[in-house]
C-alpha cells in the first residue's frame, strides 16, 4: 500500500532521511520496509531531526510525572518502560542503543516520556494518509544528573500498551535537556 506522511515539527528540520520534500510518499511493503516513491530506494524507517527551542519537562505545580533512575539500571529500566509502551524488540533495541549511552553519562538521570497526544502537541504534528489503524508515538525527555534530588516530587508514569493490526505506525524519538543552568527553587 502507498501512504503519504506529513510532519509538522515545532521547530526547523536539520536532517531528514530519506529527504523530506513537503512530505514523504512511500510504499509500505508486506514483508517490512518502506520504499520512497520519489527515488525508489528502500529504507527500514523514515528519519528526521529538528531544532526546537521550547522543549521542556511537563510539570504540575511541584510534581513531575516521570522517573529519576540510578543509571546502573538503565537497560532494565528502558526495557521495562518500552515494553509497557508496546514497542517491539527491534524498536526497543534501536531506542536503547541510542539513548542508553546518553543516559549513562552520569550516575542518575531524570526521564519523562511524552506519549501520543502529548507528543503531538509538544513535539510534532503527524498527518498520514490513509489514516493508520493504529499509531503510537513515544518521545523521551532526559537529563543526566550528578545528584538524584531535583527539588520536585517525581511521580512514576504508567503506560497502556496497544494492539497492532492493519496499518500500524510507530514513532520514537527524544531530546536531552540541559538542566545545568537552572536554579533550584
Amino acid at each position: 500500500m502507498t501512504a503519504s506522511v506529513k510532519l509538522d515539527p515545532k521547530g526547523e528540520f536539520t536532517f531528514t532521511y530519506p529527504e523530506y520534500n513537503a512530505g514523504w510518499n512511500v510504499q509500505v511493503n508486506k514483508l517490512g520496509g518502506i520504499t520512497d516513491l520519489a527515488t525508489n530506494k528502500n529504507y527500514p524507517y523514515l528519519f528526521w531531526e529538528a531544532k526546537s527551542k521550547n522543549l521542556f519537562y511537563q510539570t504540575n505545580q511541584n510534581t513531575l510525572a516521570g522517573f529519576v533512575i540510578n543509571t546502573d539500571s538503565t537497560i532494565q529500566f528502558l526495557e521495562e518502560q518500552l515494553t509497557a509502551l508496546g514497542l517491539n524488540e527491534t524498536e526497543q533495541t534501536d531506542f536503547i542503543t541510542f539513548w542508553g549511552p546518553i543516559l549513562q553519562k552520569e550516575q542518575f538521570a531524570l526521564i519523562q516520556f511524552l506519549v501520543d497526544n502529548v507528543y503531538e502537541s509538544t513535539v510534532a504534528g503527524l498527518q498520514i494518509s490513509p489514516q493508520p489503524d493504529v499509531m503510537r508515538r513515544v518521545y523521551i525527555l532526559c537529563s543526566p544528573l550528578k545528584d538524584s534530588a531535583i527539588g520536585l516530587d517525581v511521580v512514576p508514569q504508567e503506560f497502556k500498551s496497544f494492539e497492532r493490526f492493519g496499518f500500524t505506525v510507530v514513532e520514537w524519538g527524544g531530546s536531552e535537556i540541559d538542566l545545568t543552568n537552572l536554579k533550584p527553587q
Binding site: 523514515l46 528526521w48 526546537s52 492493519g166 496499518f167 524519538g173
Partner: peptide, 19 residues
C-alpha cells in the same frame, strides 16, 4: 489478519551528541 507496518524513527533536536 495481514499486518503492515510503518516505522518512523526520530532522534531529536540539536542537542549534545554522545562523544
Amino acid at each position: 489478519m495481514k499486518f503492515v507496518f510503518l516505522f518512523l524513527a526520530i532522534c531529536s533536536a540539536g542537542f549534545l551528541f554522545a562523544g
